[in-house]
């Protein structure tokens, strides 16, 4: 728990990040920053999807399914944003120390989750189309 707070404090303390290793070629830092921003926009897109699902999906046959979909997308978007800062800070640290860049399973997990969700919805749409006939 204490460790978690230290990690969070480090995200907000640029001096600490600058104190390790040596200043890299600025292009590496900027590329890292852009990767962070791309992840952030991925998170924002998920949040926008959740907000749109809550407002523009018609009520679904299953009670509150629309709200569940919306909240799931919102939480996924929030998680992506928090993970983006953590990954950015760890990458910056590794660049400054000349270490290997941090590996992450997160992109694969996110891709699987989104793919699975899309598949479920395709099945739901097909089931409904067959049921309506």
């Amino acid at each position: 728990m204490v460790e978690m707070w230290q990690v969070i404090r480090r995200w907000f303390d640029p001096r600490e990040l600058r104190s390790v290793g040596s200043t890299p070629d600025y292009r590496f830092s900027l590329a890292n920053e852009r990767t962070f921003l791309a992840w952030l926009r991925t998170g924002l897109a998920l949040v926008a999807g959740g907000l749109a699902a809550a407002q523009f999906l018609p009520p679904l046959p299953l009670a509150h399914l629309r709200e569940v979909i919306a909240v799931a997308l919102l939480l996924l978007g929030g998680t992506v944003a928090v993970r983006a800062v953590d990954h950015w800070a760890r990458t910056e640290r590794a660049i400054r120390l000349g270490e290997e860049l941090p590996a992450s399973r997160f992109p694969a997990v996110l891709a699987l989750a989104v793919g699975l969700g899309a598949l479920l919805l395709v099945v739901a749409v097909l089931v409904r189309a067959v049921g309506d006939r």
Binding site: V47, G50, L74, L75, G78
Partner: peptide, 12 residues
Amino acid sequence: ALATAGFAGFGA
């Protein structure tokens, strides 16, 4: 990033 997570929580 905090603002993004904030919008997610606020939206929920």
